[in-house]
């Protein structure tokens, strides 16, 4: 095994030191186990489920597939940073009011994926929503409530009463 790694990561605008890490550690692991940021969830650790979704330089990616030590000099954003004042975003509110959360394991990843979609596309079609969320698996809700939450956010952002 190679010697211990020391590097720093910028997460939600804050610089964190990472010490004594192994070079192969994923960003998911480092966020959760070293930096005390357990918002991104780990389920499959092979890119299949999306519960670990974070943004790296504005791209929505699976943090389980990012080698943490390669993400130095990058802007990393996690679900914890969506609203720094501790309030909920409109997407998070809609997930609650529309009943899109059951066990909640998939929720942080889905919330990130929905924010990413709606930041780029203000009125996505049904197909675009489904495609954008195709990398996020939910075992509980059957997706209907999740799509309802997305629709509610789109409607309210576009000034339509829902």
């Amino acid at each position: 095994m190679s010697s211990a790694e020391f590097y720093s990561l910028t997460v939600n605008g804050v610089e964190h030191q990472v010490a004594d890490a192994w070079i192969g550690e994923s960003l998911l692991y480092v966020l959760r186990e070293r930096l005390g940021l357990p918002g991104a969830k780990g389920a499959c650790e092979q890119g299949e489920c999306g519960s670990c979704t974070v943004f790296v330089n504005g791209e929505s990616v699976c943090s389980c597939l990012v080698m943490a030590a390669s993400a130095v000099n990058c802007e990393i954003a996690t679900v914890e940073g969506l609203n720094s004042d501790g309030t909920l975003t409109d997407v998070q509110e809609a997930f609650i009011t529309e009943g899109a959360v059951q066990c909640g394991f998939c929720t942080p990843g889905l919330v990130m994926a929905v924010h990413h979609l709606l930041d780029q596309n203000h009125s996505p079609s049904e197909l675009e929503v489904k495609e954008a969320l195709s990398g996020n698996i939910c075992r509980c809700t059957g997706y209907g409530r999740i799509f309802a939450a997305v629709d509610a956010v789109i409607a309210s952002r576009n000034g339509v009463e829902s």
Binding site: T53, S60, V61, L65, E131, S134, G135
Partner: peptide
């Protein structure tokens, strides 16, 4: 290929 997250990487 995969999902949007996979295609971004």
């Amino acid at each position: 290929v995969g999902s949007p997250q996979i295609r971004a990487a």
